[in-house]
Design a protein around this nucleic acid. Structure first.
Length: 357
DNA sequence: GACACGTGGGA
DNA sequence: TTCCCAAGTGT
């Protein structure tokens, strides 16, 4: 068994060393940077992270600069990357590390994992890559790769423990970070969900699924659920060349980002009536509707929307009263605030010079 | 344990 | 077009 362990990690690292590496910042050794990249990489493809990673570092070169920053300026850099809780949790965790840990990432697994936004995977990934501590980091890729190695159909809790035990046994004690990354790269480049490419796999001799006709059927894919669809109307409420934006509550969907007032159209309600109702509810003012934009479609992780925006005028002189923080901004100021993608899609539909009421 | 949580790209 | 996938975590 001892011999097989060594061979497993030797084969894997040999493949890793001669293959082109997937991360452009693979040579990083600053724990802050490794932590940042692991947060950005959660459920997000490497190619998409790269640009954000460098943009972020230019603006926030150290953990201390993150801790000192305003949440809104962090969100502005994160804008478009999605899963915005990651950004706010990272901010909160950075402040804790600066304040309670003298600016050093705690090397104890439990302590590090107790910070917001850090779970089993991220704790293991950062500690193994930054400090050479041999924790197996088990992400989606590695789950799939190991399910095939062990010919597991379903990743039950019991099977997950099996995978974890195997990896604790196999992990290279001198290069644990490279070991983890190599297995992820293997899943990303070779052992793909729908094409196992066993002919190119350095781990073929260890793999039980590779001995079958259809290695791709391990693990069995989960059936996906239908997501609901909603029709949404938003208002561009104009006043002296400015329109109203509201800041979303931190604990809600897209928390901390800004939005236009509006909301879902109720069953059998007209878009116009819905928007007037929503603006009355959210801002306590009455509006007259002008022309509207073409609809845009947008899909979130768990529902989809079709959105239109109406130009609006205030009906009387009443002041906006909202539970959410609000601002009146010019179109030029859009770039100063973090907005969700759906809002940017709408803004792109509007000719602000001509449509401005 | 199930569900919420963004977005872009490829099949 | 539609569906699936992608270096997970919090509740």
């Amino acid at each position: 068994m001892k011999h097989e362990n060594t061979l497993f990690s030797k084969n894997l690292l040999n493949w890793y060393d001669i293959n082109k590496r997937t991360l452009p910042w693979r040579s990083e050794s600053d724990p802050y940077r490794i932590w940042l990249s692991e947060i950005m990489l959660q459920q997000t493809q490497t190619e998409r992270v790269s640009h954000y990673y460098f943009k972020w570092l230019k603006r926030f070169p150290s953990l201390k600069s993150v801790a000192k920053a305003k949440e809104e300026s962090l969100l502005k850099v994160w804008e478009g990357l999605g899963y915005y809780n990651r950004c706010r949790n990272f901010h909160s965790a950075a402040k804790t590390v600066i304040k309670d840990y003298n600016g050093k990432i705690p090397k104890e697994f439990k302590l590090f994992k107790s910070l917001p936004g850090i779970g089993d995977y991220t704790a293991a990934a950062v500690l193994s890559i930054a400090f050479d501590i041999p924790f197996p980091a088990i992400d989606g890729n590695i789950k799939r790769v190991m399910a095939r190695m062990l010919r597991i159909k379903t990743i039950t809790k019991y099977n997950f423990r099996r995978v974890q035990k195997e990896l604790e046994n196999f992990i290279d004690k001198t290069r644990p970070g490279d070991f983890n990354q190599a297995l992820m790269d293997l899943g990303n480049q070779v052992c793909r969900p729908n094409q196992a490419h066993c002919y190119a796999c350095p781990m073929k001799s260890f793999c039980r699924a590779a001995q079958t006709d259809h290695p791709e059927q391990y693990p069995r894919p989960e059936l996906s659920k239908d997501i609901p669809h909603y029709d949404v109307v938003l208002g561009l409420i104009w006043k002296k060349g400015r329109f109203l934006i509201l800041k979303r509550d931190n604990r809600k969907h897209l928390g901390g980002l800004w939005e236009l007032p509006g909301g879902k159209i109720d069953y059998r309600e007209s878009p116009e009536k819905a928007l007037i109702r929503e603006i009355k509810e959210e801002c306590n003012v009455d509006v007259i509707l002008g022309k509207n934009t073409d609809p845009i479609k947008h899909r979130y992780s768990h529902f989809a929307i079709t959105v239109r925006a109406f130009h609006c005028q205030l009906y009387n002189g009443k002041k906006v009263f909202s539970n959410q923080p609000n601002r009146w901004i010019t179109p030029q100021q859009i770039i100063k605030f973090p907005f969700p993608k759906a809002n940017h899609k709408l803004f792109a539909k509007i000719n602000f010079d001509a449509d401005n009421i």
